[in-house]
Write a protein that binds this DNA or RNA. Structure first.
Lengths: 232, 232
DNA sequence: CGCGGCTTTGATGTTCATCAAGTAAAGTGG
DNA sequence: CCACTTTACTTGATGAACATCAAAGCCGCG
């Protein structure tokens, strides 16, 4: 599940330069670059764990990650599954000293870490950078909140349809894709039992909404999927 | 439900000065003060509606509010119920041009509005202010996210117990309090049916966990409430 | 090749929504 | 202030949705 070795990756151009660091002058950007540590995580590897002390500001450069916490009964509750650009650090690195959630790689991923104190110093020094960061952070947290509401709102079939539609449209931009998660992880995401998630997959197959071979999913009838997702 | 008249209230000292505006020098604080409009909302009144254009940064000075959105079927889905200090503006005023959620007063409330462009200008000019704002905003959004997860995690009885415990401990700091919301609103908050919320109240009464006369609640057995809240 | 984890399906019981009917409470107009 | 209307609350009965348990097949990995 979790391989401890982390190797440094090469870092040529930072895709986040425009998204997050556009407002930094070249001197400050150099400081960020020099401070930054780029880490590769292989599929299944932990990026950070619930309870760890927050020392870095993290963002995902490539790959796919899941944000989750452990429930009282020891089950994983998945909070978000996100690609780069959208996900920037955890939701609360500025207000809490310890991570409240764990983060692990669903696909091979590259994350950059920058010392949080440096980021704070740069915000204080450069308000434009701070404003941009507020905007980016707020976009991500807003997505997490509204997705949580969307899930709460739906019944079993609606939740499964919603998740499939999310992977298809937001993550893979394709009607055919390989699920990056197990059936159990989908269940942990939508707060339903694994058996019922699988049952719903079977129903969707029977109804000609999807085809699936293992983790490979093809959405045959996106319109019907959308209808089911809108509470059906 | 909704009275259109809004009257200006007197504004002597701003309680938010330390929480949000501590980093502003007196000149900038004066600009905020001059720009700020203080509005009184009576119980039930809308503060802003889903879809309205975001022009102001808002924070609650006193009272109690609910943040909610309308579902596809026209029902209210309540996202958060918060007192002042914790709630600062909506969650996404920096990343979206229009409100995604509505905000209305559960008790008579006073909200301050400041032109959002001024806030942005001050962030750009004063990074310390920006950093403080990030911290405060992130604290609120984090609470909304984790509360959503807490709710998703629980069954009917657990959700009702959780909400009662929330009102008792976080909002009113007392074992006896008047519910600021109807049974239906609790149902809209925890995504359960009104009838079942009421039934659960009755069960809690029968089991000697609470007493209730209308909206007045007394928590008799906080420990048992806690046990039920922890799923079951 | 055998073990363990993931997947699948069926059967069963619990939990929950929905409908219906009635009571209490609260606002509304004369 | 009272009759009227509406809205909130309450409870029971019923069926639908969902969890849980169990058994079996599949697949990857050592």
């Amino acid at each position: 599940m979790q391989k401890p070795e982390k190797k440094k990756c090469t870092c040529l151009t930072c895709d986040f330069r425009e998204l997050v660091f556009a407002n930094l002058n070249s001197e400050d950007f150099d400081r960020v670059c020099n401070n930054k540590v780029e880490l590769c995580f292989s599929k299944g590897e932990m990026i950070n764990a619930e309870g760890d002390t927050v020392t870095d500001f993290k963002y995902l450069k490539s790959g796919l990650v899941k944000l989750f916490r452990l429930t009282a009964s020891g089950e994983e509750q998945i909070i978000a599954i996100t690609r780069p650009y959208e996900f920037v650090s955890n939701t609360h690195v500025f207000s809490e000293g310890k991570y409240k959630y764990s983060l692990s790689a669903l696909e091979d991923s590259v994350a950059c870490t920058i010392n949080l104190d440096l980021i704070k110093e740069l915000i204080e020094k450069n308000g434009g950078f701070g404003l941009q960061l507020i905007t980016v952070l707020s976009r991500t947290t807003e997505r997490i909140i509204s997705q949580g509401l969307d899930i709460r709102n739906r019944n079993l079939a609606g939740r499964v349809a919603y998740v499939l539609s999310y992977f298809s449209k937001e993550i893979y931009h394709s009607r055919v894709f390989d699920l990056p998660v197990s059936r159990k992880e989908i269940a942990d995401f939508i707060s339903m039992s694994t058996a019922n998630v699988i049952r719903t997959f079977s129903e969707f197959k029977r109804d000609g909404i999807i085809k699936s071979y293992g983790r490979t999913i093809e959405i045959i009838d996106p319109d019907k999927l959308e209808v089911v997702s809108k509470r059906g």
